[in-house]
Amino acid sequence: MEQIAKLKELIATAEADADKFSKGNNAAGTRLRNTMQQLKVTAQEVRTAVTEAKNKK
Rank of each mutant, 00 (worst) to 15 (best):
M1K: 00
M1F: 00
M1V: 00
E2V: 00
E2D: 05
E2W: 01
E2Y: 02
Q3C: 03
Q3L: 12
I4M: 07
I4V: 09
K6A: 02
K6Q: 05
K6E: 05
L7T: 06
L7C: 07
L7Q: 08
L7R: 06
L7P: 00
K8Y: 05
K8H: 07
K8N: 11
K8E: 08
K8Q: 08
E9V: 06
L10E: 02
I11A: 11
I11G: 12
I11R: 11
A12E: 11
A12K: 08
A14T: 00
E15L: 05
E15M: 05
E15W: 01
A16P: 03
A16S: 13
A16Q: 10
D17W: 06
D17Q: 12
D17Y: 06
A18E: 11
A18G: 04
A18S: 09
A18T: 03
D19W: 02
K20A: 15
K20I: 04
F21V: 00
S22A: 13
S22K: 13
S22V: 07
S22G: 14
K23E: 13
N25M: 09
N26R: 12
N26W: 07
A27Q: 15
A27C: 02
A27R: 13
T30H: 14
R31Y: 06
R31Q: 10
L32A: 14
L32V: 12
L32F: 13
R33V: 15
R33E: 14
R33Y: 14
R33I: 15
R33N: 14
T35C: 03
M36R: 09
Q37E: 13
Q37F: 14
L39A: 08
L39I: 14
K40V: 07
K40I: 08
K40D: 14
T42N: 05
Q44R: 13
Q44N: 11
Q44A: 11
E45G: 02
E45H: 04
V46R: 04
V46Q: 01
V46W: 01
R47E: 13
R47V: 14
R47L: 13
T48P: 00
A49S: 13
A49C: 04
V50R: 11
T51C: 04
T51D: 15
T51A: 14
E52W: 06
E52L: 13
A53D: 00
A53C: 02
A53M: 03
K54G: 01
K54D: 06
K54M: 11
K56L: 15
K57F: 11
K57E: 10
